[in-house]
C-alpha cells in the first residue's frame, strides 16, 4: 500500500516534471523541472527494486548530466537570447503531434496483458529470478560476464548465459573517444572568424 502511494506520488512528479520542461519557456526553470523529473525517475527505480540503478541515476544524471546541461545554460544564456520563445503555432503543432504519438503508444501498451504473455513461456532459457533489491553483486558479476542469477544448462554442461564483459569494456573505449571529441570541439578555436567561411582547410 505504501508502495502504491509512493508510486503514484513519484509518477506524478515524473510526469509533472517532464511536462514542466516542455511548457516552460525559461531555460533555467527547464533545468529545474528536468532535475525534478529525472530525480523522481530514480525514485521509481528504487520502487522497482533496482537500487544500484537508482543510485547511479541520481549520481550520473542528476549529479552529472544535468549539471553539464546547466553549465551549458550558463555559458550560452547571455544577453538578449536569455529567453528564446517558442511561438504558439509551433507549440500547438507540437502538442498535436505529441498527442497523436501518445495515443499510439498508449493504445498499444494498454491492451497488453504481460502476465499472460509470459506464463506461456516454454523457451529453453529459464525464467530468471526477478531482481528484488540488492542488485549490486549480480550486476557487478554480469558486467564481468558471469550470470549466476541465470544459469543455462544444456544437459550436464554449463553454458555461459549472456554476460556483459564486452560492452563493459568497449563502452570505456567509447567514452574515451567521445571525451576526446568533446574536448576538441569545446577547445578554444584557432580560427575565430565565424563570419568568413573559407573552404580551404
Amino acid at each position: 500500500m505504501t508502495a502504491d502511494v509512493l508510486f503514484w506520488l513519484f509518477a506524478a512528479l515524473v510526469c509533472g516534471g517532464a511536462l514542466g520542461v516542455v511548457v516552460t519557456q525559461n531555460i533555467v526553470r527547464m533545468a529545474f523541472w528536468l532535475i525534478l523529473s529525472l530525480g523522481s525517475v530514480s525514485a521509481l527505480f528504487f520502487l522497482l527494486g533496482a537500487d544500484f540503478l537508482g543510485a547511479a541515476q541520481l549520481l550520473i544524471y542528476v549529479g552529472g548530466t544535468v549539471v553539464l546541461l546547466v553549465f551549458g545554460v550558463m555559458l550560452t544564456a547571455s544577453g538578449p537570447y536569455m529567453q528564446i520563445k517558442t511561438s504558439a503555432a509551433d507549440g500547438l503543432l507540437g502538442a498535436c503531434v505529441g498527442g497523436l504519438l501518445f495515443l499510439v503508444l498508449v493504445s498499444s501498451i494498454s491492451g497488453m496483458d504481460w502476465s499472460q504473455l509470459h506464463t506461456t513461456n516454454t523457451t529453453p532459457s529459464v525464467i530468471a529470478e526477478r531482481p528484488e533489491g540488492n542488485t549490486l553483486r549480480p550486476l557487478g558479476l554480469a558486467f564481468l560476464g558471469l550470470r549466476p542469477d541465470r544459469p543455462v544448462t544444456e544437459g550436464s554442461e554449463v553454458k555461459p548465459a549472456p554476460g556483459y564483459l564486452l560492452p563493459f569494456e568497449i563502452v570505456s573505449v567509447h567514452l574515451l573517444v567521445v571525451l576526446v571529441g568533446a574536448a576538441y570541439l569545446a577547445r578554444a578555436k584557432r580560427r575565430a572568424n565565424p563570419s568568413n567561411d573559407s573552404l580551404s582547410a
Binding site: G49, A50, L53, P138, D149
Partner: peptide
C-alpha cells in the same frame, strides 16, 4: 526487469544506456 523474464538484463541495459546518454 521487474515484471518480465527479461530480469537483470533489463537493468544492465539501463545502466549502459545511462552511460551512453552521458557520452
Amino acid at each position: 526487469a521487474r515484471y518480465t523474464p527479461l530480469g537483470l538484463d533489463g537493468q544492465v541495459i539501463a545502466l549502459f544506456v545511462i552511460v551512453l546518454a552521458a557520452a
